[in-house]
Nucleic acid binder design. Structure first.
Length: 933
RNA sequence: GGGCGGUUAGCUCAGUUGGUUAGAGUGCCACGUUGACAUCGUGGAAGUCACUGGUUCAAGUCCAGUACCGCCCACCA
């Protein structure tokens, strides 16, 4: 074994093990009635995506969970896959087209979709390959894509079912419109961002009070109403002004008419409770088709709606010839100049306000009146709220429960139609003849509110499957709705659609299932509901909440019981890591440099919720992996295979417990069990950092710093050999979920393995321990005493090479002294001491010795020929001050009658004991000070 | 505007039902390569627990208020 490098080299091992695991079917999980299921569905990354640090974190966490559960004997299934990411993928393909000077319309729908599939097939596998590099133990045979043929069946089925239950409808409302993507977006896809803008105060001339309603005579002096707006360009869509009915200033104006500047159109002044008299001038321009509030007001007052902006963000003919065709923001600037010249602009104030932005291309959203498909959410949300309330779905950390609950209670209908081509086409069919009539009606760009859509009127003749002819007019020219569904409308079905749901289609018809379908159905019944969902907070609303609703609707059961929300990956300045900011660290570069295990271990070892990353942070994981490598190398180099018995812990326990002299062995076993217990508890509660730090602490500061060091003395002993072997074996198992590759590599070198692959070995189980027999106080006291002795050495600048000639340890506890005598050789080894005496007699000690005190144990160190006492006095005085202060504190406490009578007895006794210890320490410190003065 | 979190060492964070001298990692300083590991070892310095008041024998921990920071949601143009 001495041929191993002193440095761990991940490159030589990672791909090798992944390939072998794969070949041996370690990743694949079937339904297994002898085991309990544990299932995770991956949050499917965008098919356009490449692995970033957020993915690395997200998937490392899932892999840790799944690997541990697999080792614990669960049927652990992790289903991987990707998401077709409608708008994102379409954008990518369009961008590549534009390099050839083409648009999607040049190609036509079918050819464009073909191009998109080509692209997907060529590049879509990238992220999957990268997840494999990371070591993800997904069942790769079950990889799914949201545009798979049978997945599309699930999407259609869901649409049809909701439609039948009146939970999907088509309607005309103000939606979020991205003028660049030229598509509607859901509210979640249009996040608000604070923008620094202006508040423009525009004068609207009041029409002369002639009751006949004649136009304003030229040169007549006019009165104005001043309106404050952030979006002057929408004034071409104004169909009223509104004031608050209780606003005294404007009471007389209600019902009057003003003339819309430039457009020279007359509009009424109405009153509405919605208007806040405090804001601006207290007068609002009402633009029903370009603002959601104004739309509501428009409906309340049955106003006309006028569209003045085109879908691409340019102004239309209603904006007069001057502005027709101008971009909305150019139009704003030009219009403001125009108003200034006409002296209709009173003033401009700086004003910051929140504006919706497209989450894909960050273009400013246009609130736009349009005809779209919606899902009625309130009825779906009701059960989802109840399930979480009852604790059937738990969020970790818990506070996300509230955020989920809050959103669900204020949920609004979900706009699911998108005016793009890449995605699931809406399964609604129209009759060409009937639809024609409807479209001709709506070309005017003007409507009277509210607009009610009748399906009959707009020509929808079927949802689900294409009919042969129109049932109304018999026309055989039938066409499908051109829009596709929001990507999230497919991903909200993920936890069951991946298993092949539905198993009969269309939903009304039942038929014989194929063998494949039978198996899928059995899988679904076995693995659903899944166990844990691991994701980032950004997609709680997009995905998590909606999956809960769809699971309840379509399966009648919640899709998962636990939701773990992990933090955000940031740079070391706290900024969110992103490609556009240029502060991203590429996980693949880190893997290349330090290995996947180092990447994984670094990520989960960072404390806190959000991760503040810099290249240097990955050295932590690299160092830990190297330490693991070298500790293993040392043990393996020294093992004599013929002595290794492959003990189970419980056997080794009874062997160790049999002798009083196995203090160190008892101690390390106890520490191992404590570590297992703590790691299990942390992981069950999704406290990953806590788990890794317990493991790290056990491995480095218990096993390496103490046990391996003292084992060097009697490394030939059979007990030591077996102890080292067992500790290594269990340490590897505990490390495996965090660092799968290195642990497998070392596992394979163990003289006695208990499984062909560590990834299929058993997770450590705690044996029954009689705690009383496992008290390891004397070992702890030994470590403490060696600590103060080392401290003293450093204080006197005694070279690490130089050993202490003699140390006398004094305690009045005989049993402790007996234990210490057993540990004699360890004291000598770890304290670098030549001779050590354990006694209860406080012997006179030579003048050139120094005393240290640990708890109630004293040790005299002979320093003859070693010391340089320059700073000893100063140090002693400092320590005396600390101890004195503490003695005073305890003294006061013990003098306090209230304390004595009210505090629990244990606390009082504890204080008394401490007092004794401090008094002893003080006595020794003072004696020492006197000695050197 | 509404909601949720936070403020503890230079930095990132732990800190259980109130009870030893408030901990860890990292960074910093000193010393050190004797056969696992310098990607290492040993030791050290470093904190007014944001502020104010209250409850209590006892407060980083519980309560109230203040200040500051962060996040999410939102239809005041």
């Amino acid at each position: 074994m001495d041929n191993l490098s002193t440095r761990y080299n991940p490159k030589e091992v990672e791909d090798k093990w992944f390939k072998l695991w794969s070949e041996k079917g370690c990743f694949h999980q079937e339904k297994d009635d002898t085991k309990k299921p544990y299932c995770i569905v991956i949050p499917p990354p965008n098919v356009t995506g490449i692995l970033h640090m957020g993915h690395a974190l997200n998937n490392t966490l899932q892999d840790i969970l799944i690997r541990r559960k697999r080792m614990q004997g669960y049927a652990a299934l992790w289903v991987p896959g990707t998401d077709h990411a409608g708008i994102a993928t379409q954008n990518v393909v369009e961008r590549s087209l534009s390099k050839e000077g083409k648009t999607r319309h040049d190609l036509g729908r079918d050819e464009f979709i073909e191009k998109a599939w080509d692209w997907t097939k060529a590049h879509g596998g990238t992220i999957i390959k990268q997840l494999k590099k990371l070591g993800c133990s997904c069942d790769w045979q079950r990889e799914r894509f949201t545009l798979d043929e049978d997945y599309s069946v699930a999407v259609n089925e869901a649409f049809l079912k909701l439609y039948k239950d009146d939970l999907i409808y088509k309607g005309s409302y103000i939606i979020n419109w991205c003028p660049r993507c030229q598509s509607a977006l859901s509210d979640e896809e249009a996040p608000h961002k604070e923008l620094q803008g202006n508040l423009y105060y525009i004068k609207y001339p009041i029409k002369a009070t002639s009751k006949k309603g004649k136009s304003i005579p030229e040169n007549q002096e006019l009165d104005y109403v001043v309106v404050a707006t952030t979006r002057p360009e929408t004034m071409f869509g104004d169909t009223a002004l509104a004031v608050n009915p209780d606003d005294e200033r404007y009471k007389d104006l209600i019902g009057k008419t003003v003339v819309l500047p430039i457009a020279e159109r007359e509009i009424k002044i109405i009153s509405d409770e919605f208007v806040d008299p405090e804001f601006g001038t207290g007068v609002v321009k009402v633009t029903p088709l370009h603002d959601p509030n104004d739309y509501d007001m428009g409906c309340r007052h049955k106003l006309e709606g006028i569209l003045c902006i085109n879908p691409d963000g340019t102004m239309n003919a209603n904006a007069t010839d001057v502005y027709d065709g101008l971009d909305r923001f150019e139009a704003r600037e030009a219009l403001v100049e125009d108003l200034k010249e006409r002296k209709l602009l009173k003033k401009v104030d700086a004003h910051s306000h929140a504006v919706g932005h497209c989450y894909r291309c960050h273009t400013i959203i246009e609130p736009y009146f349009s005809e779209q498909w919606f899902v009625r959410m309130k009825p779906l949300a009701k059960k989802g709220i109840e399930e979480a309330k009852r604790g059937n779905i738990k969020f970790y950390p818990q506070r996300w429960n509230k955020i989920y609950d809050n959103w669900m209670r204020n949920i609004r209908d979900w706009c699911i139609s998108r005016q793009i081509w890449w995605g699931h086409r809406i399964p609604a069919w129209y009759c060409s003849d009937c639809y024609k009539i409807y479209t001709e009606n709506k070309k005017s760009l003007k409507v009277t509110l509210p607009v009610e859509i009748s399906y009959e009127e707009i020509g929808i003749i079927a949802v689900g499957e294409k009919p042969n002819k129109c049932p109304k007019c018999g026309c055989t020219e039938i066409f499908q709705d051109p829009d596709v569904l929001d990507t999230w409308f497919s991903s909200w079905l993920w936890p069951f659609a991946i298993f092949g749901w539905p198993f009969s289609q269309p939903s009304a018809v039942s038929r014989q299932l194929s063998a494949k379908e039978k198996k899928q159905k059995a899988d679904l019944e076995y693995f659903y509901p899944t166990s844990t969902l691991v994701t980032a907070s950004e997609i709680i609303f997009f995905w998590v909440a909606r999956m809960i609703m769809s699971g309840l609707k379509f399966m009648g059961k919640i899709p998962f019981s636990d939701v773990y929300i992990h933090g955000t990956v940031r740079d070391d300045k706290g900024r969110k890591m992103s490609k556009s900011l240029g502060n991203a660290i590429d996980p693949l570069e880190i893997i290349e440099k330090h290995g996947a295990d180092a990447l994984r271990f670094s990520l989960i070892s960072l404390p806190g919720e959000d991760l503040y990353l810099a290249d240097s942070k990955f050295e932590f994981g690299r160092n830990a992996m190297n330490k693991l490598w070298n500790a293993s190398r040392f043990i393996l180099m020294n093992l004599d295979d013929s002595k290794i018995r492959n003990y189970e812990p419980k056997d080794l326990i009874s062997k160790v417990a049999a002798s009083q002299s196995n203090i160190a062995e008892k101690w390390i076993l106890f520490e191992l069990f404590e570590a297992i217990k703590a790691i299990d508890e942390s992981l069950e509660n999704y406290r990953f950092h806590e788990a890794s730090s317990k493991l790290y602490d056990f491995f480095w500061h218990k096993l390496c710093d103490w046990y391996i060091e003292l084992a060097k003395i009697n490394i030939e002993d059979e007990l030591t050999q077996n102890m080292l072997h067992l500790c290594l074996k269990y340490t590897l198992k505990l490390f495996h979920p965090f660092a799968p590759f290195i642990t497998e590599e070392i596992w394979q070198k163990l003289p006695k393995k208990d499984a062909e692959f560590i990834m299929l070995s058993e997770w450590p189980v705690l044996p029954d321990l009689d705690q009383a027999n496992w008290a390891t106080n004397s070992f702890d006291d030994m470590m403490g005493l060696i600590g103060v002795i080392r401290n003293k050495r450093a204080q006197f600048n005694i070279a690490p090479m130089a050993s202490l000639p003699r140390v006398i340890v004094i305690s009045d506890r005989e049993s402790l002294l007996d234990d210490f005598r057993v540990l004699d050789k360890y004291f000598k080894q770890l304290g670098n001491i030549e001779q050590i005496i354990f006694t209860s007699e406080d012997k006179a000690v030579s003048k050139s010795s120094s005393v240290v005190v640990y708890k109630a144990i004293k040790a005299y160190i002979l320093l003859e020929g070693l010391i340089d006492i320059d700073n000893e006095k100063e140090k002693l005085n400092k320590e005396i001050n600390v101890v004195e202060r503490e003695i005073n504190n305890i003294h006061n406490r013990l003098e306090n009658k209230a304390f004595l009578s009210k505090a629990p007895k244990e606390v009082v006794n504890q204080q008394r004991q401490r007092m004794d210890e401090y008094n002893l320490k003080m006595k020794e410190l003072k004696a020492a000070l006197k000695e050197i003065s």
